[in-house]
């Protein structure tokens, strides 16, 4: 009986604690979502003046914002593809083959991850200027690919650390040649790691501000555009945009989570 009471009081405290944490995490999001439907028209757009969809409509009339969104998407997709291919091959190669200086190369991989982004931004800018790569879409893709590759490698490597080489031998032993073994065994087993790496590269690219700021030239990405527009208070159309992105990400997360869960069951 006593035991039960104790448990219950723990339960209540636990519930309050949890609620606080979730309130802390989700309150800002709630504010954004609510404000994106706020009918106010005077700065700083904070007092509630009734419900409206106007900001969403306005959003789709804002050519510049839409253009920057398109740029961001193109850059993110290209970055994801490049970083994933390069990263996967590098990770598998570094796992399978022994070569001189391997441990040094391993260690060097952490540098792009740990150096401050601002340093990376400046050095990329200098480099692009030196070798005369015009600043724009292309330089942005290169820059984003640069900082994404290590993350892709780390992600796949985490998977490889539990990878048992003998399953490839088992596959060949059972009559599959090397190509079939790669597609039947190696790739599917590494797939969750590759997908995770790709997703990471995609998100890193989408919301990058600092490196993009140095390397964009005239090309505007969405984060840069948002930064620019909030100089005069957060206008509700940016809120609306945030809500749309929020929904997009949530969908992506739900999709990949269910995919990963499905995959995890048999790993």
């Amino acid at each position: 009986m006593k035991q039960k009471m104790k448990k219950n009081s723990y339960g209540v405290v636990g519930k309050i604690y949890c609620s606080l944490i979730y309130a802390f995490l989700f309150l800002p999001i709630v504010v954004i979502v609510v404000n994106s439907f706020n009918a106010t028209t005077s700065k700083p757009y904070l007092s509630w003046k009734g419900f409206t969809f106007d900001w969403y409509l306005k959003l789709f009339e804002n050519e510049e914002l839409l253009q920057s969104f398109q740029n961001t998407m193109i850059i993110a997709v290209c970055t994801t593809i490049m970083a994933t291919i390069v990263g996967t091959l590098a990770a598998v190669g570094m796992y399978k083959y022994k070569f001189r200086g391997k441990s040094t190369i391993d260690a060097l991989l952490y540098i792009p991850v740990v150096i401050p982004e601002i340093v990376l931004g400046i050095s990329l800018l200098t480099l692009f200027a030196k070798i005369s790569i015009p600043r724009g879409m292309f330089s942005l893709i290169l820059a984003h690919t640069t900082f994404s590759i290590p993350y892709v490698i780390f992600n796949i490597r985490a998977r490889l650390s539990r990878y048992d080489n003998s399953i490839e031998e088992a596959s060949m032993d059972l009559g599959a040649n090397r190509l079939k073994t790669f597609f039947n065994i190696t790739l599917p087993v590494l797939a969750p790691g590759i997908a995770g790496g790709a997703l990471l590269a995609f998100t890193l690219s989408i919301d990058d501000v600092i490196v993009s700021y140095f390397t964009n030239g005239q090309t505007m990405t969405l984060p840069l555009k948002v930064m620019e527009s909030i100089k005069s208070g957060v206008s509700p159309d940016v809120n609306a945009l945030s809500v749309l992105i929020l929904i997009g990400t949530a969908l992506l997360v739900v999709l990949t989570q269910s995919g990963i869960l499905k995959g995890k069951k048999n790993m």
Binding site: D164, S166, I167, E169, A170, S171, M172, D173, L174, G175, A176, N177, N184, I185, P188, V189, A191, G263, N266, M267
Partner: peptide, 28 residues
């Protein structure tokens, strides 16, 4: 090549394919 020899191996680490069901493993 290993895949051309009429010999099969049972590996110490089992080396089962983790992403396949038992059925698919045996059927491979």
């Amino acid at each position: 090549e290993p895949f051309e020899r009429n010999i099969n191996t049972v590996f110490q680490s089992y080396a089962l394919f983790p992403h396949m069901t038992i059925y698919d493993n045996i059927a491979y």
